[in-house]
């Protein structure tokens, strides 16, 4: 009888399941675009480009927050091995944000770089979103084991603390974009305050313990 170690259970069972789950929104989107192009009823509304743009941005932001949830979850549940999932969640967050940027430049503005540049420098919420995306790039690039070794654990950790300001930029970007209704942004702010607050709490607790 083979008994799976927790590590194996995570890498062979849980990780593939989470992978599919994180991919699911993108599969859904692809499926509905194929319905749209076949002139079939679909879930993309009468303005599929705006819908797609918001859909990808929304999932990107959700996954950024989800990435921030992994370490508190592993600490609070004492399932340290959950940390093995964090890199994947983070890379998914980056992928959705990158697709969000792609849909904005390609679907929405169709490579009209002059117009896009005007948007980026003139519209605060787009400036903020762009800063967030640029901040994610070094994190994605340094996500491999080799890069961790190359940078050294300490430097790597320091660099990856960038995710905190990025998450704030992300929620800002979203709440500034919203017209009138602020219920959803308030929910995101609450989750973010909890996730960052938890880290502040841990920081002071550890200092008190030291």
């Amino acid at each position: 009888m083979v008994i799976f170690s927790t590590k194996k259970l995570i890498s062979h069972v849980i990780k593939p399941i989470v992978f599919i789950a994180l991919l699911a929104p993108l599969l859904w989107l692809g499926w509905h675009w194929s319905l749209l192009l076949e002139n079939q009823p679909n879930g993309l509304t009468a303005n599929p480009i705006e819908y797609t743009n918001r859909f990808l941005g929304g999932w990107g932001l959700k996954y950024i927050l989800l990435t921030l949830l992994v370490s508190p979850l592993s600490q609070l549940t004492a399932m340290r091995k959950l940390m093995l999932l964090r890199r994947m969640v983070g890379l998914f967050a980056f992928s959705y944000v990158l697709l969000h940027f792609t849909s904005y430049t390609v679907l929405d503005h169709y490579f009209n770089w002059a117009e896009i540049w005007q948007d980026i420098v003139k519209r605060n919420f787009i400036t903020i979103g762009m800063l967030g995306l640029l901040g994610l790039v070094p994190l994605a690039v340094t996500s491999t084991n080799r890069m961790i070794k190359k940078l050294g654990a300490k430097n790597w950790k320091r660099l990856h603390m960038l995710i905190y300001p990025i998450s704030i930029l992300g929620v800002f970007h979203f709440s500034m974009m919203r017209k009138g209704d602020q219920l959803e942004p308030k929910i995101y702010w609450s989750v973010l305050v909890f996730l960052l607050g938890y880290r502040v709490y841990r920081f002071y607790q550890r200092r008190a313990g030291a």
């Binding site: 009468a46 303005n47 480009i49 705006e50 503005h109 169709y110 009209n112 519209r123 605060n124």
Partner: peptide, 19 residues
């Protein structure tokens, strides 16, 4: 005259791809 958060220079006609 732009909306403070987005440009009003172009629009997407519902049913079309390009602005």
């Amino acid at each position: 005259v732009s909306h403070p958060r987005w440009s009003q220079a172009s629009e997407r006609r519902i049913g079309e791809f390009r602005r």
